[in-house]
Design a protein around this nucleic acid. Structure first.
Lengths: 343, 343
DNA sequence: GGCTCACGTGGGATCGATCCCATGCGGCCC
DNA sequence: GGGCCGCATGGGATCGATCCCACGTGAGCC
């Protein structure tokens, strides 16, 4: 038990609860009760302990507490790529809600790899996070975490529907509505530009697109459903092919912000004017869409609300581990700008 | 010691190293040596232990390890706002480098508040992070963390220059060069739009601006240095005032991406054409700047490189706690687009 | 007076992994 | 043959906070 602070105010050793107890002239148990507020402590003793803690700049060692309590006060967040504004804003939303409830954030990115997701999940298990919020890329993460009894909430898309809580948006409806708008403007040749249709997001956005066309009696043209890789460059070249003069659609619906960026760049590359030569709408309202001219009409998702709902769901799951899984649906909001025009 | 796994493969209790040791028929010490790779273990014994661990789905409890070792394998990251692409990309860069070195990320946002920074720092101390990467908003965080002997690296701006490691860009030079370009195009009335000049970033960008003008023999016009609040709306209205017809500058240099967005929106609001009516350049090349027409000329910062350098610096600091502080400077790259024009 | 009960405090076990130290064994060298 | 050293293993203390339990005191009640 040496000195705790050197001449410059730098601590040579961290104060432990034992130091606080000694300084306050009580036992460790009493100091613990005073600091945590659980159990009986006389008022004057509590104050003496708190003063001693303050004085020694005592910061409780969370690792010791977590070890004893078998759970930490942090939430694991696993997203694909923080450079994508959707994930960044989602993470910000989760972080805000987590902080509001006294949790800190352990953040990991997977770059879209299922393998990386499981590795991140292993870290979560090891650090005993209280729960995990994940945008899954396969069922593996959820399976892994569930096996280890770690509460999970899937956000944005679902791979373990029915077996795991989830927070999603109404993809089908958002998609259908934005296509209905295009149809209302007289469009008949509407392309869907999409990266995959196996995840719930892609599948439902695809289905919403089909439903809108079907309801209007417009036959589906398979050539107008174009798939692309997941990054901007792939989207840009796939879009360039889609926009070649022969058989060009009059409108394009990009199923997410990355694809929209690809279409936008390809249209610029080809000298196509939006909306004069082409109407363009997007699922997911990225920040750039309100900065370009014309602004893009998009199906906006409230990422902060998604993140907050995910944390709330997680906390309820933690409180009631055996309750039935719940899927929360957040509504979308179509943001009308100037990238569409009547035909 | 009950069963570890129930009928569905869900673990009823987590396997501990003791379970692994018993399953492999060795002591906890030997199991620990086999699993960590530190100390002597016979080859066949090691394999038996690893097999047992695999079999029991053993995941070492990091909280126990951290408690014993008095330090965790995670790095704290503290930024202002993930919704700002600069911070998101910086965090992504830090995360990538951290992962590459076996560290996980504890992420916190402060919304620009010094108070929130200290609170986040307290969490970092409590969880015994190995070190912290921070974009400081005052000297408080660094002071607090240093007192508690937590290694810190300041990124983007410095508040504890000389007392703390830092990774920054050459703000003065980036700023000067982009202004020189404007001067080369014939501009004389160049406004600087800036939020603050007390942080190193603002101060140096301001100084670079002044240096370029001085070198060209252009007198400083204090009316052309306009300050604004830190959010887009504040920037937008301040920019609107700056761009009123009487005495309007021919070019504006926005000192960061948020300010650039404010100017961009204000120019649109006022019907000003860029670059015909106004040249605009920015410090910090945000993603939207390559999507708008005309594209914005900007001083680009490599956020991934900043993040990686910060992690490397942190790891060296951890390895040599008493070494002299080092400031690493990352170079900037002017990205020329079409938002400027000769006058 | 003896009983219960609320309040208040301290001792000691506990969480799970690490690591120091003691011990044992076999080979090798002088 | 004795001593030394490398290899290999296990026992037990340790990290810091929590929390169960035992114990003590004094008030209130029959």
């Amino acid at each position: 038990m040496g000195r705790l602070v050197d001449g410059d105010g730098v601590m040579t050793r961290r104060a432990t609860i034992k130091d606080v107890a000694i300084a306050a002239g009580v036992s460790r148990s009493t100091a613990s009760r005073a600091l945590t507020g659980r159990g009986y402590v006389a008022t004057d003793v509590r104050e003496r302990v708190l003063a001693a803690a303050e004085d020694l700049r005592y910061v409780p060692d969370a690792t010791a507490r977590y070890l004893k309590q078998q759970v930490s006060l942090s939430i694991g967040v696993l997203v694909s790529d923080l450079r994508n504004s959707f994930y960044a804003r989602l993470a910000a939303g989760v972080g805000q809600a987590a902080r509001d409830h006294g949790y800190s954030l352990v953040l990991a990115e997977d770059g879209g790899s299922a393998q990386a997701q499981v590795e991140a999940a292993e870290t979560f298990v090891a650090t005993r996070v209280a729960g995990v919020v994940v945008t899954p890329v396969s069922a593996d993460v959820t399976t892994y975490l569930s096996r280890h009894r770690v509460p999970v909430v899937e956000v944005d898309r679902q791979f373990a529907a029915g077996a795991c809580d989830a927070v999603v948006v109404d993809n089908h409806r958002g998609s259908r509505e934005v296509i209905e708008d295009l149809i209302g403007l007289g469009h008949r040749r509407i392309a869907l530009f999409i990266d995959e249709t196996t995840w719930t997001t892609g599948r439902e956005r695809h289905a919403g697109y089909q439903a809108a066309l079907a309801a209007a009696g417009i036959p589906l043209d398979p050539d107008l459903v174009v798939s692309s890789g997941w990054d901007v460059d792939a989207a840009r070249s796939a879009a360039a092919a889609l926009l070649r003069p022969d058989g060009r659609p009059t409108a394009v619906f990009a199923a997410n912000n990355v694809l929209a960026e690809g279409v936008w760049r390809a249209a610029n590359d080809l000298g196509l004017r939006i909306p004069d030569d082409l109407s363009l709408v997007s699922f997911d309202d990225a920040p750039w869409m309100s900065l370009v001219t014309p602004g893009l009409t998009a199906v906006g998702q409230d990422e902060a609300a998604l993140g907050e709902a995910a944390v709330l769901r997680l906390l309820e799951r933690i409180a009631a581990p055996e309750a039935d899984p719940v899927t929360v649906t957040i509504s979308t909001q179509i943001v009308h700008r100037a990238s569409t025009r009547a035909i």
